[in-house]
Write a protein that binds this DNA or RNA. Structure first.
Ligand SMILES: [Mn+2]
Ligand SMILES: [Mn+2]
Ligand SMILES: [Mn+2]
Ligand SMILES: [Mn+2]
Lengths: 236, 236
DNA sequence: CTTTAAACTTAGTCATGTATAAATAAAAGT
DNA sequence: ACTTTTATTTATACATGACTAAGTTTAAAG
C-alpha cells in the first residue's frame, strides 16, 4: 500500500513485509542478511524468498547478489521506516485512544500498518502529540523518517545493585512477558531501584507505586532482564 | 479477513467486496442481481465476476444459478453486514475521533473495513457510544448485525414548501456534493424549512444556524435533493 | 415462430506469491 | 586439495483473481 515517490508504484503487503524484515534483521548499518534467515522470519520457503528478492531488486528496493545476501537501497529503507512509523504509531494509538491491552496491540498493528493512509498516520500522530517513543519504548521515526535522538539506555543486566533509574524500553512482543511486566508495574516510564543483581536474575524496587506494593521482590530472569533498558535518574 | 463461524475460513478483500456489493445492489429483500451490474460496481470484467460467483457459491456464500442472477445466503449476508458495520463505524470514528474531513472518510473506510479486527470494531463502537447512525445518516447494524429501528424519513423531493424537519440522511459519497452540503450546513442533525420546491430544484432555510447566514437560498438540484432525507419536527 | 441483440459463461492467458524437488555454489572439515 | 555439508538458486507447479476473445443462453422484436 505504501506508494513509492517516483513512479507512484504500490507495493503489496508481502513486499512491504519483506522490506521491513530485512531492515529489522540487519543490525549493523552496513550489514546484509541471508535468504534463509529472511525466509524463516517471513514464514516462507527459502525458494520463495529468492523469487521475491529478484522482484524487489528489479524495483530498485534491495541490493541483492545471488548467494551473497541482501540489503536495502535508499528507497527500500524508506519503505521499511515508513512501515515502522505506522506500526509504532498504531501501537501507541490502539493503547492510548482505544484502550487496547498491552498484549493486543502488536498483531493488530502488524496488519494495519500496511493499509492506513498517510492521512491516518498524520492524524494519529497529532492525536498522540507527535510521540517519539511507542509503549514499548521503541523510537518512532518522525514524518521525515528521522529517528529521535537516542537516549542513553542500558540493559538491566549491565547495571549493579543500588542503581536508580527510569525504565525507557522493554524490547519484547511476547504476550506472556508483557502481561507479567504489566502486572509488576515494570513498563516504560517507571522509576526503579535495583535491589539485587545476580547470576539467576534481577530484583527491582518500583519507586513510584503506592507504598502497599513497594516491596516488589519478584526475580526477573536474566533472559528477560536483558531486554529491559534503564536510563539513570530519580522520580521528579 | 472476516472469519466465517463454521470452518474458520478467511475471505479475501475481493471476496468480501463482492458480497458487500451484492448486498448493496439488491434493494428488495428477495431480489437478485445480474453479473453485469455486479461486475460494473466492482470494476471488473463480467467474466471475472462469473468466475468469482462460482467460488462464492462453492463456499456457500451466494445463491447463484448460471444466467439467472445471484443473491446472498444467510452466511453471505452476515459477511456483508459485518463489513457494513465496520465501514460505518470507521466513517464515524475517523470523523469524530481523528478529525477527518467529511469527504476524506469514505476511501479510508472502504479499505480498512477489511482489515480491522473484531476487537477494533468493539473499541470504536465503545469510544463512539454505540452509535446507531453514521455521519451520512446511514444506519449501523449492531454487534449482532441487527439494524436500528427505522426512522420515518422522506426524500426532499417528496415534500412541499413550508415543511419543517430535521435532516437525517444524506445518501451520497461524492466528494464534491459532500463538500457543498457541508458548506451549506446541510448535514444530518440540521433542522430546515423548505422555502421553495419546484421542477428545477429545492430551496431550503437552515433553522439552527447563526442569523447572519439565515437566508440560505441556494438551489439544490433535484438529483441531489432526492438523496437528502428529512424527518418531520422542529428544533428543540 | 424466427431473428437479433443483450447478457452471460467458457476457454485460454497472465501476473503474483507461494510450494517442492533437483541442481549448484559456497563454506567447513580433514 | 578434496570431500562433505549447508545455503541458495533454478525449474516446475499450483492457487487466486484478473483479462480478452469466442461461444451460449435468454429476452426482445418482428
Ligand atoms: Mn506487517
Ligand atoms: Mn506513512
Ligand atoms: Mn472495501
Ligand atoms: Mn466485525
Amino acid at each position: 500500500m505504501i506508494i513509492l515517490d517516483e513512479s507512484k508504484k504500490i507495493l503489496s503487503e508481502s513486499q512491504e513485509d519483506y522490506l521491513k524484515q530485512i531492515y529489522l534483521l540487519i543490525e549493523d548499518p552496513q550489514g546484509i542478511v541471508g535468504t534463509q534467515a529472511l525466509a524463516e522470519r517471513i514464514g516462507v520457503a527459502p525458494a520463495s524468498a529468492t523469487a521475491m528478492l529478484h522482484k524487489l531488486r528489479a524495483l530498485g528496493l534491495v541490493h541483492y547478489a545471488e548467494y551473497r545476501g541482501v540489503s536495502l537501497t535508499e528507497s527500500g529503507r524508506k519503505v521499511a521506516l515508513e512501515l515502522l512509523r505506522h506500526h509504532r504509531l498504531l501501537e501507541s494509538f490502539l493503547q492510548t485512544a482505544l484502550g487496547y491491552g498491552w498484549e493486543e496491540v502488536h498483531d493488530e498493528a502488524e496488519r494495519l500498518e500496511h493499509y492506513i493512509s498517510e492521512t491516518f498516520e498524520t492524524r494519529m500522530a497529532l492525536w498522540l502529540g507527535e510521540p517519539e517513543f511507542d509503549p514499548h519504548g521503541d523510537p518512532i521515526p518522525n514524518a521525515d523518517l528521522v529517528f529521535p535522538v537516542v537516549r542513553t539506555e542500558t540493559s538491566l543486566t549491565k547495571l549493579g545493585a543500588g542503581f536508580e533509574g527510569q525504565i525507557v524500553r522493554v524490547a519484547t512482543q511476547d504476550r506472556d512477558e508483557l502481561n507479567l511486566l504489566s502486572h509488576l508495574h515494570l513498563l516504560p516510564g517507571r522509576f526503579v531501584k535495583i535491589a539485587e543483581s545476580g547470576s539467576n536474575g534481577v530484583r527491582l524496587n518500583v519507586l513510584n507505586v503506592d507504598t502497599s506494593r513497594q516491596g516488589n521482590h519478584f526475580l526477573i530472569p536474566l533472559s528477560l532482564a536483558a531486554r529491559i533498558f534503564l536510563q539513570e535518574g530519580q522520580p521528579s
